[in-house]
């Protein structure tokens, strides 16, 4: 009954709209001052094998999936990595010892080591921003409008609408590595 009260943040990528411009990667880097060559979100470019007669190329964004059963949370010895009420998997920088164990534990290659802070780092769905009434930095900047974000428990949110639209139109919707049972919260939508 109270289900509507708890938020559950999630993101969807409308794959057809992503053009691999990497604006999201840089916006995020700026927002979080991510050092070195690291990013909190990435775009994979996939090229269909040469054998097919019709060339095709796909762009798949990815970042932390804010898994409901997150391996990174399980393996974190200090509980710095934790799952919040609102669905966000966050890292408490004050607690992280920097043991790096969570980095290979993540099946989505979402984590990296922040050499400036000496802690593990990853997407936080732009935590303070989203409570300031803004969208995450990557969503805000995405020129292709490929990224949709919101509270999946709120039927009026952008993401709920996008997922409903996808279901109504029978678009393909999937999450990554379902087989691992991590219950990720990032959806891929493709026409």
């Amino acid at each position: 009954m109270n289900a509507t009260k708890t938020k559950k943040f999630a993101m969807a990528y409308i794959v057809d709209r992503c053009v691999d411009c990497k604006a999201c990667m840089v916006a995020c880097k700026a927002e979080w001052q991510i050092p070195d060559n690291d990013f909190r979100t990435h775009i994979d470019t996939g090229i269909a094998p040469a054998a097919t007669d019709r060339l095709s190329m796909h762009f798949l964004p990815h970042q932390c999936n804010h898994c409901d059963d997150a391996p990174c949370v399980t393996v974190c010895p200090t509980k710095a990595s934790h799952k919040r009420e609102d669905g966000v998997v966050d890292i408490d920088n004050r607690k992280c010892v920097g043991c790096r164990y969570c980095i290979p534990s993540c099946p989505y290659n979402a984590r990296f080591f922040n050499n400036e802070l000496g802690v593990a780092d990853k997407c936080t769905f732009c935590l303070p921003r989203i409570y300031d009434g803004l969208m995450p930095a990557c969503v805000t900047t995405c020129p292709g409008k490929a990224r949709v974000f919101g509270d999946i428990n709120d039927p009026e949110s952008e993401i709920s609408k996008a997922l409903k639209d996808a279901a109504d139109n029978r678009y393909r919707v999937w999450t990554l590595r379902k087989d691992l049972g991590t219950e990720p919260n990032i959806y891929y939508i493709q026409k």
Binding site: V15, D44, T45, G46, A48, P49, H58, F59, L60, H62, P107, Y108, N109, W174, L176, R177, Y188, Q190
Partner: peptide, 9 residues
């Protein structure tokens, strides 16, 4: 890790 695009390809 597998590139994630491999999954849709």
């Amino acid at each position: 890790t597998q590139k994630f695009t491999d999954y849709i390809m």
